[in-house]
Amino acid sequence: MSFLARRATAAAPGLARAFSASARRDIAKITLVGNLAATPEVRATSTGREVLEYAVASNTGTKDNRQTSWFRVAAFIEEGPRRDFLTSLPKGSTVYVEGEAVMNTYTDSEGKSRNALSIYQKNIEVLRKPSPTE
């Protein structure tokens, strides 16, 4: 019997997972398809690191009952052609974004506890750019 076969049969039922050389890491992943709310912008964080920020709008429902969900996305992309390309994308571009989702809790100015979803981009693909007449 091979090493992998012995390992699989020795694992407790329900605890086995696919073989991986890396340690297990729990991550909440999210996939978005929607339109850019504005051209992505580069901002400096409080530590001086630069972050690319943008919002994606995703619509659901029929025309009469359409609802729009807004997602704020951040990406840590070094200066260069890739970042230049993303900052040149016009509002209304349809994008496919894969990222990590993190729920943050903070206290607002009125002292109330609030939650905010942070999405950190891992991959982005441009599906469509708006035509100049849009």
Rank of each mutant, 00 (worst) to 15 (best):
M1V: 09
S2G: 07
F3D: 13
F3W: 10
R7K: 11
A8Q: 13
A8D: 14
A10N: 09
G14H: 06
A16K: 06
A16H: 08
R17F: 05
A18H: 10
A21H: 12
A21E: 15
S22D: 15
R24H: 12
I27H: 06
A28P: 02
K29D: 14
I30A: 06
T31V: 12
T31L: 12
V33H: 05
L36Q: 07
A44I: 06
T47A: 14
L52T: 05
E53Y: 07
Y54L: 11
A55C: 07
N59H: 10
N59V: 15
T62S: 14
K63W: 10
D64H: 08
D64E: 13
R66S: 09
T68H: 03
V73I: 06
V73Q: 01
A75M: 04
A75C: 03
A75H: 02
E78H: 13
E78G: 15
R83W: 07
D84G: 00
D84M: 00
D84F: 01
F85Y: 15
S88D: 12
L89Q: 07
L89P: 05
P90K: 04
S93W: 03
S93M: 02
Y96L: 14
E98C: 09
A101G: 04
T107R: 01
T107W: 00
T107P: 00
S109E: 09
S109P: 00
S109Y: 04
E110W: 00
G111A: 03
G111P: 00
K112S: 04
N115V: 11
A116C: 02
L117F: 05
I119H: 03
Q121E: 12
I124L: 11
V126R: 02
V126G: 02
V126C: 10
R128T: 11
K129M: 15
P130Y: 03
S131E: 12
S131P: 06
E134P: 02
E134V: 10
